[in-house]
């Protein structure tokens, strides 16, 4: 009888103590998880609070579609269409250069490469992801600009290289996730290794590869430092591959240091536009990923 009551007490105490400890820890985990949401919400708030009034003041149409960006003129004009197009062109160029190379590398790594070579190439590709973008910028200045000039082309080539690790990594895991029996089925019909891989395995990995491309787009459009170092950054409508171009990110970084008043707010509004781009890209990425799984 006595033992039982003591046991009960222990249990009760233990439970009560456990409850407190568990509640406390749950609160800690919850707060930790909340912090990233909080960061997103704060970013949204400050971006929109500073950017939207500026867009209102300039006028959405003349801000988004205006072809002239001359903030120090009187009266100043704040049209960011050149930068929007600049970002889109440069990103498209990076995709044209980076995606074929990246997807073919992924096929090679996943289905062709001997194990020993894989151990050499894979860390190399991963290392590419870890190189700071300013180092890419130096590389671009030293190795690309002498041939292609400070131009859109240089930026495209450099960004094409920079998105490789993203495209290769995600495409490779998508290709590896394709069940082996597709490959075997193709072989059993008399198809060779490459025909089986390119006509059956790669199409089966289609949504994963598309997700890789979308993520590459996200990386390219948000890239700042490396682009500034090779793109020339003239704030005018992009006219040629071999002329300078300014992207949305470059516009913000270059002028933020000295901008005041409406000029400063217009730069923040440029950030809003960039943010919307990234949002669209992320949404399409999650849509693709859900379809892939």
């Amino acid at each position: 009888m006595e033992r039982r009551s003591r046991l009960n007490e222990t249990l009760k105490f233990g439970t009560r103590f456990g409850t407190f400890k568990e509640k406390f820890m749950r609160a800690v985990f919850f707060l930790a998880a909340l912090s990233s949401i909080l960061a997103v919400v704060l970013i949204c708030y400050f971006l929109l609070a500073n950017g939207l009034p500026a867009i209102g003041e300039i006028g959405p149409a003349s801000f988004l579609l205006g072809k002239e960006w001359s903030p120090s003129d009187t009266p100043p004009s704040f049209g960011i269409l050149p930068m929007i197009l600049g970002s889109i062109y440069v990103t498209a160029g990076a995709i044209v250069i980076g995606v074929p190379i990246g997807v073919l590398s992924a096929v090679f790594l996943a289905r062709v490469c001997p194990k020993r070579l894989y151990k050499l190439i894979k860390p190399g590709v991963d290392l590419l992801a870890g190189i700071p973008s300013v180092v890419y910028g130096f590389f671009g200045m030293a190795a690309i600009v002498p041939f292609a000039g400070n131009s859109m082309l240089s930026a495209c080539i450099l960004l094409g290289v920079m998105i490789l690790p993203t495209v290769v990594g995600i495409s490779e895991s998508a290709i590896r996730a394709v069940p082996e029996h597709y490959y075997e089925g193709a072989l059993a019909l008399g198809a060779g290794h490459y025909r089986s891989v390119f006509r059956v395995v790669l199409p089966a990995a289609k949504s994963g590869v598309l997700a890789a491309i979308v993520l590459g787009v996200g990386r390219a459009i948000g890239e700042t430092m490396a682009v500034i170092m090779v793109a020339g950054n003239q704030a005018r409508m992009p006219i040629s591959l071999f002329k300078g171009v300014r992207t949305l990110t470059a516009n913000i970084v270059i002028e933020m240091g000295y901008a005041t008043g409406l000029h400063r707010d217009a730069l923040i509004a440029t950030g809003v536009v960039l943010f919307v781009f990234i949002l669209i890209i992320n949404l399409s990425f999650s849509a693709l990923r859900n379809r892939a799984l």
Binding site: P179, H181, Y182, E184, G185, A186, A188, L189, V200, P203, A204
Partner: peptide, 11 residues
């Protein structure tokens, strides 16, 4: 020709 245990039509 060969037919496998698990139906494996290509996607």
């Amino acid at each position: 020709g060969m037919v496998f245990q698990k139906p494996n039509p290509f996607p």
